[in-house]
Each structure stands twice: as C-alpha cells, then as structure tokens.
Amino acid sequence: MSAREPLWRRLLNGWLLIVARFGEVQTLVILGIFYALLIGPASLGARVGRADMLQKKPLEAGSAWGEADTAGADLERSKLQS
C-alpha cells in the first residue's frame, strides 16, 4: 500500500483538476469566438461570391480528374511547408 498523500498535495491536485476543467471551457469559448469572428465572415463572403470551395456543385459531362497541383521536385520548394 502506498502512503497516504499529504493534505497539501491532495488540495493541489484538486485545484489543478478544477483549473484544468476551467481551462477546457475557456479554450472552447475562445475558439468559439474565433470561429464566429474569423470563419463566419469568410464563409459569408464565400457564399455571397458563390464560391464552390469544395467542388460540391454537380459535375457536368466529362471527367472529374483535374490537373495535378504539385510542387515539383525542387530543393527550394521542398524547404517550404506550403
């Protein structure tokens, strides 16, 4: 049997649990605000501009293959994350 933890340690652990939960809620709230303020207007703009960002409109005749958008085999391009 392990020795019983001292009172201060148990209090600290309890406090850390509370702030962790509080932090989770805070993160959700902040992300929600970002989502509404950044993604929302961008989405509105895309809808006004009738942008089909995910190619969801039905395809007309022909192939659904598109030209490949690849970076090519180049050392300088390979250094980029984009």
Partner: peptide
Amino acid sequence: STYIATFPRSL
C-alpha cells in the same frame, strides 16, 4: 477552407 465552406456546422 473546409470550415469556411461548412460554417456553422463545422464548429
């Protein structure tokens, strides 16, 4: 881009 295209369901 996907989040923008699927707002607000992508929250």
